[in-house]
Computed example of a mutant assay.
Amino acid sequence: MGYVTLRTWRQRSAATAARAATLKARLAAALDLGPQDALSVTEVACADPACAGLETVVLVLRAGEPSRAIRLACALDAVDDEAIWAACEGERLQRRR
């Protein structure tokens, strides 16, 4: 890995934060979250050899319910509508139990 300046690092961090904020807004609407609920979106390195290298982890924190983790097997910038729909469907099924 080459030398990264503080300015470059901040630009990358800002871009990642913007993508995470956009994804949070889309997920909050799709999951029908209320103002008392929260989401955390994080891109992490995947330790599974079958994984593509990065995955996106979404923590769903609903008021009065246990928190749930949703794992998307793709990088933050690769999350598409299909992945969001599948994640939300899985969350809906979990809540019915």
Rank of each mutant, 00 (worst) to 15 (best):
E89C: 01
D80Q: 12
D37K: 12
A45H: 05
C46Q: 14
A21R: 09
R95D: 00
V60A: 14
Q94K: 09
D81K: 10
E91D: 15
R7C: 11
E55Y: 06
A29G: 13
R95G: 01
L76M: 10
R97C: 05
E82W: 14
L39E: 03
G90Y: 11
Q11F: 05
A75R: 09
V4Y: 01
A86I: 08
M1F: 09
S67E: 11
L33N: 09
R10N: 03
R71Y: 12
R26I: 02
D37L: 10
L93G: 01
A20E: 02
V58A: 09
E91H: 08
R62C: 07
A29R: 08
C51F: 10
A14D: 13
A17G: 13
C74V: 15
D32F: 00
L59K: 03
L6S: 14
A25I: 04
A29M: 04
A63C: 06
A69P: 03
V60Y: 13
Y3E: 12
A75D: 01
Q94I: 03
Y3Q: 12
Q11N: 05
R97P: 01
Q11Y: 03
R95F: 00
D48H: 05
P66C: 02
V60P: 14
A15H: 11
G64Q: 09
V41P: 03
A50N: 04
A47D: 06
A29V: 11
A15Q: 15
A25L: 09
R10G: 00
V60T: 15
E43P: 01
L39D: 03
S40A: 11
L59E: 12
A20I: 02
E82P: 04
T22Q: 06
L39G: 02
A86Y: 10
R12A: 13
E82C: 12
M1P: 08
T16F: 04
V44G: 07
R7T: 15
R68S: 00
L23K: 05
T5Y: 11
L31E: 05
R96L: 13
A87H: 03
C51G: 15
P35Y: 00
I84E: 14
G90A: 15
A50H: 04
R71A: 13
D81V: 13
C88S: 13
A45V: 08
C88H: 11
Q94H: 14
E82Y: 14
C88F: 12
W9T: 13
C46S: 15
A69Q: 14
I70A: 13
R19E: 05
T8C: 05
V79M: 04
R12D: 06
E65S: 04
G64D: 10
G34Q: 02
E82R: 15
D37S: 07
Q94D: 09
S67L: 10
T56N: 12
T16Y: 05
D48M: 08
R95S: 02
L93F: 09
D80W: 11
R68I: 00
D32Q: 05
Y3S: 13
R92G: 07
L23G: 04
R12K: 11
A38E: 10
W85L: 09
A18K: 05
P35T: 06
R96V: 04
L93K: 06
D81A: 15
T56A: 11
E43W: 01
A50E: 08
A21P: 02
R7D: 15
A20K: 00
